[in-house]
């Protein structure tokens, strides 16, 4: 535990916990919408922001927030039009985003180690300024996702109904898009662009193996995210592994454990139910 006496480890732990709590709180809406991979796409776009930040000598995280938000809003506008050509537009945006990021990082003085820090996360190099950004944005995100839960649930559950109910559907969708962009950029420093979706989606997938309602799923997913983030950083500190990868692998391990336990419980219940049902009535007709 003595590693956590160092300020850089404390920052790593705090950042991981904030992200572990906030990412599933937003991710649940994306899962409900069947947009689980959108975080990946926005991560690609955020990389261009990182490149621009490094090139301009500005905070890469803040520039990435701006660029990812613009990208997310563009994606949402394409989605809202709901036309097949949107598929192609998304592909252009995603690959343009990652190519732009690689190119801009190359143009700047940054080394490939800098790029790696954003691709795969680098919790231990989080500066006090980065931590402030992560905590402020993470808490704002968490409060918004919790306070607007009924409305966001309605829009993600049945968008047409929400429109007829007069809800500000477009504003709520844009809010989710911006929220996704913010989650992606703050999580980028923790688990990296390539692993962000895992933190938004895997805790939700784990929780819904055993929950019955939306609210309980959200609470359980946030608890699981917190657990994966905390234990991931602890494992990384003690076993000297990459923190981002450790967090994600722990999240996936909890998914496997919970999914297997839930499947086992279902099988047991079915066997009991079968034993309890009486023998079927004899056939009334003979089918030749």
């Amino acid at each position: 535990m003595e590693l956590f006496q160092y300020p850089f480890m404390q920052r790593a732990l705090i950042a991981a916990l904030v992200i572990g709590l906030a990412a599933p709180a937003l991710g649940i809406y994306l899962v409900q919408r069947r947009l689980t991979l959108i975080g990946d796409g926005i991560g690609h776009v955020a990389l261009t922001g990182v490149g621009a930040g490094l090139l301009l000598n500005r905070s890469p995280v803040l520039v990435a927030v701006v660029v990812a938000t613009l990208g997310a809003v563009a994606i949402e506008l394409v989605r809202a039009r709901g036309r097949t050509s949107g598929d192609l537009a998304l592909a252009l945006l995603f690959y343009g985003g990652i190519a732009g990021g690689v190119m801009l990082v190359g143009l700047s003085d940054a080394t490939s180690a800098n790029l790696n820090a954003y691709l795969f996360g680098s919790l231990t190099t989080i500066s006090p300024r980065d931590l402030t950004t992560i905590v402020v944005l993470g808490v704002a995100l968490l409060v918004t996702m919790l306070a607007l839960r009924p409305a966001l649930f309605a829009v993600c559950h049945d968008e047409e109904y929400a429109r007829v109910a007069g809800l500000p559907v477009r504003a709520l969708n844009l809010l989710l898009a911006v929220g996704t962009a913010i989650t992606v950029t703050i999580a980028m420093r923790a688990v990296g662009v390539l692993l962000i979706s895992a933190l938004m989606v895997v805790p939700v997938a784990t929780a819904q193996q055993v929950t019955r309602g939306f609210r309980t799923t959200m609470a359980a997913a946030m608890a699981l995210g917190l657990f994966a983030a905390g234990s991931g950083v602890w494992v990384a500190a003690n076993a000297d592994t990459a923190p981002g990868a450790s967090v994600v692998l722990l999240a996936i391990a909890s998914f496997l454990v919970v999914a297997l336990a839930a499947a086992g419980r279902r099988a047991l219940r079915r066997r009991r139910a079968e034993a309890a049902t009486p023998a079927p009535e004899p056939h009334e007709v003979v089918l030749g």
Partner: peptide, 19 residues
């Protein structure tokens, strides 16, 4: 609607009618 994979209780769906 398909409503995605996240479970929702009957009460939660009905409650969105109040929004």
């Amino acid at each position: 609607g398909a409503g995605g994979g996240v479970p929702a209780t009957v009460r939660e769906v009905v409650a969105s009618g109040r929004l």
